[in-house]
Structures are given as structure tokens and as C-alpha cells.
Design a protein around this nucleic acid. Structure first.
Lengths: 234, 234
DNA sequence: TTCATAGCTTAATGTATTGTTAATAAAGTT
DNA sequence: AACTTTATTAACAATACATTAAGCTATGAA
């Protein structure tokens, strides 16, 4: 996949239908992961960052509603589409109650689905952060390598960063002098924005501040209620 | 209205249908404004902050698509629902292209509409997104950044602004040297103009005056019974 | 398998920020 | 003068954040 492509997770137990849908979306330049059931769907959801989930409702082991609910608990913002042959009002209502962005009844028009996907993914929101392949950064007098996970000050005295420290610092650097919204970091790194992950993030901010305090010109500022901001003085 | 209610703008030329819809939503605890056509719809949209717009597609003078487009230009994130008797695929696609969040064909089930409204308004998606791309301003010798919520004087000595201070100053700046009607600020920021919110606004005016007094050429004047005016001397 | 440990989460505690309301004074209007 | 509107400061409660420490858990070495 290339960095600009949006990632879509499809969870669909009907092998044929799932693959047709997958191919159609790939043809339209999305990066698609297909899971065969709810269990697998949750696993794949946890493993990487998706921009959208399309869930079939009727599936063995774990149905789409249950899966959708679990995903919604982990991530309050990711768009969810339900697919179903059931056109019962109760089901539709249930879908929206879980926090669906749309409920499509089979058969549906693929062009309309595509339009809906586009509309929701092109919407301007701060979760649309382009991926980047860059992994070497300068932060004041520090050098930060996010691939090898270390931080050096003036060419020596290297600090090893843990995976989470590393990811957080990386996100901060990618937004230098600008706002890194709290929710963005939680969604990207923790894949879950609950009270506790938010506390956890605070702990990591404290750790990073400790590492960075050797250079007085480098600071992590808080913007109350919004997020953090890595400032590098000239 | 009370400040917790979500505000919905309905634009619908069919008087009966519009009123039924309005009453139904009011019954479900929304604050609703009904406009009879596209022109009036745009006027009302400009006056206060809505959380959602429901637009009928076929209307005289200005159709729903045109209005939707204009609203989208002003506000990239507000949820838009289109209502139409036309079920033509081309129309649906056109709606989504404009940036619709949903396209409902009449007749539709009111419970389903309600579920969709709830789902989209309870979503934590869009609240934090800056309303506009312009967020850097000069006020005399001050620099004001409404995205990062700070105010600097002569390049240093930065004052952090709280969300409310920030919104108020932003509105004042957007009306520099001109009247910012009290009512407008209350509707936009407090979403409610009662006695208490008005007192609250006075408190914020006092705070801003304190921040701005370093530059004698910058003043917030009161226009008795009308509102405030941010004056910047040459 | 057991053990040590790095890495992460949760708890505990303290501090800061924010927005509303109150209290009181001052200014403007009629 | 009587009334309304605005000014300013302060008290308060509700959140949000900061920091340190303690408690888990998965991983890999022995």
C-alpha cells in the first residue's frame, strides 16, 4: 500500500461477496483488509489503524452488531458501516444506536456505497493525518531516530525509547509547533480513547518531558482540553 | 432553549411537512429553527451555531443542493442531511458529492431519522475542528493564534487563552473596528442568550481587556445596549 | 517451566485551568 | 432620581492535567 491510501476493514463471512467488495474497493484505490468473521475482525482491527470499517451483520461466532459495539468502545470516532440483508426497522435502529454511520441493506448500489465512503473519508477532520516514511528528526539539539528508537543529545548520551514513548514522540514531532490533538494520539497509538488510556498518555508525556528537559528550548506544552504541542525555540 | 440542547436547522418549503418535522424533533428535545426557503435558510445559518442541518432538495428560489454547497463552504464539518422525494441515483450521488452525511428519500421513517440524528450528534467527531482555516491575526502589536489559543506581544510573553476567551476574541477580531452585537456572540459562543450568559460574557470581556491593555492602541469599547467593538488605532 | 524484567497501565495525590455565579460598584438612559 | 446596563473582582465547583509510585503482563533467557 502507499501512504495516501485509506485503509478499510471489511468483515464479511460470505467469501464471494466479501471478495467482490474488496476488489471493487481496491480498484477504487483503497487499501482493504478482509476478515471472515467477528473474531478475526476484532483481531485485525487491533493490529493496525483503519480509516473505516464495513461490517456484515449476520455472521457466525460473533455478529456484526457485537463487533461494532466492541469497536466503538475502543474507538469513538472511526466510521462504521453495517451491511445487512435484513431491512427490519429494529435492526436499522439497533445499528445506529451502536453508533453506525450508515446501514446499507443488500443488495445495494456499489456506486452509492463508494460515494458514501468518499464523503465520510474526505470530510475534514484532524484524524486524517498523512503517513510518513521519515524516521530521522532533529528536535533542538536532539537527534531522534524513530526507527531505531533512540534519542541523542549533542552526539552522545543516547536514551533508548520504549515503543510507546517512541510513537508518541514521533507524533509530536510530525506536528512540531502545532497542535497534536489528544484524541488523535489516543486513536493512533492506543487505538482506544478511554479515561485510562488518556491517563496513560499523560504518563508518557511526563516521561518525554524528562528526557527532553536537557534542552531548555524544547518543550511540550499542553493546550487545555485539546492536546499537546511540541515547541522548539530557535 | 437551554444550552445543552442541540440545535437543528430545517429548511423545507412545504409548510405542513416542515412543521410536523419540527414538532417531532422538539418533542425529542432538540432546539429547532425552521426556514421556509434557501435564502432564509442561509440567513438563519449565519446567525447562530447549529449542530445539524436538514435540507429539502426541491425548493423554489434556491434548491437544497445549492444551499448545502454554500453551507459546506462556510462550515466544512457540520452534518448535512438531504431530504428528497427523488430517489434517482444521480441525485443521491450529487448529495454525497456535496458532502452530505445522509440522503433520505420521502417518505422516510421518523424513528430512523431520529436514530441517525442521535448517532451523528453524539459522535465525538467534529467538535474540535477549527471552523475556518484562518487562525492567525494581528491586533496592534499583538499576534493572536486562535488555533493554538495564545496571544503574544512583540514576539514574546505569551498569554494562553481559555476556549471561551479564545472564541470571544476571535469573534471580536472578525469584526474589528466594527460592532460585534452582543446577541450574536451569545448565540455563537454560549448558544443561548439569557441574563446569566450575558453576565458571563461581560466577565470575559473584562479578562480580554486585561490581556490587551499592554498596547494602548487596542481597546474593547462597549456600545450601550448593542454590543462591543474592538478598536485598533493606527 | 520458572524467573527476571522491560514496558505498560492503574492508582494515588496534588496542582492548574476553566466557566459560572455572586457581590458590589460604576456608568449610561429616561 | 430611578432604572437599566455594564465593569470588575472574587468565590466556587467541576474538570483536566502532572507526577511519582505501585501493580500488572508478556517476553525471552536460563
Amino acid at each position: 500500500m502507499n501512504a495516501e491510501q485509506k485503509k478499510i476493514l471489511i468483515v464479511e463471512d460470505d467469501f464471494n461477496f466479501g471478495n467482490i467488495l474488496k476488489d471493487y474497493l481496491i480498484l477504487n484505490d483503497y487499501f482493504v483488509v478482509l476478515a471472515k468473521n467477528g473474531i478475526e475482525g476484532m483481531e485485525k482491527f487491533q493490529k493496525e489503524n483503519f480509516d473505516l470499517c464495513i461490517l456484515d451483520v449476520m455472521m457466525p461466532f460473533k455478529d456484526g452488531f457485537t463487533l461494532g459495539k466492541e469497536i466503538r468502545e475502543k474507538n469513538e470516532t472511526i466510521p462504521l458501516f453495517f451491511l445487512s440483508a435484513k431491512t427490519l426497522k429494529e435492526d436499522v435502529l439497533r445499528g445506529f444506536k451502536i453508533g453506525a454511520d450508515d446501514y446499507l441493506t443488500k443488495p445495494f448500489d456499489s456506486e452509492v456505497l463508494l460515494a458514501k465512503i468518499k464523503a465520510i473519508l474526505n470530510r475534514k477532520n484532524f484524524f486524517n493525518v498523512p503517513e510518513s516514511d521519515v524516521y530521522e528528526f532533529e528536535i533542538g539539539k536532539f537527534k531522534f531516530n524513530s526507527k531505531l528508537r533512540f534519542l541523542t543529545y549533542g552526539g552522545e548520551e543516547s536514551v533508548k525509547l520504549s515503543p510507546k514513548e517512541n510513537q508518541l514522540l514521533r507524533l509530536l514531532v510530525l506536528h512540531v509547533n502545532d497542535l497534536l490533538p489528544r484524541e488523535l494520539a489516543l486513536n493512533k497509538i492506543w487505538r482506544d480513547d478511554s479515561y485510562f488510556t488518556s491517563r496513560s498518555m499523560d504518563v508518557y508525556i511526563a516521561k518525554l518531558r524528562k528526557y527532553l528537559k536537557t534542552d531548555a528550548k524544547v518543550e511540550i506544552l499542553n493546550i487545555h482540553g485539546e492536546g499537546f504541542r511540541l515547541v522548539v525555540g530557535q
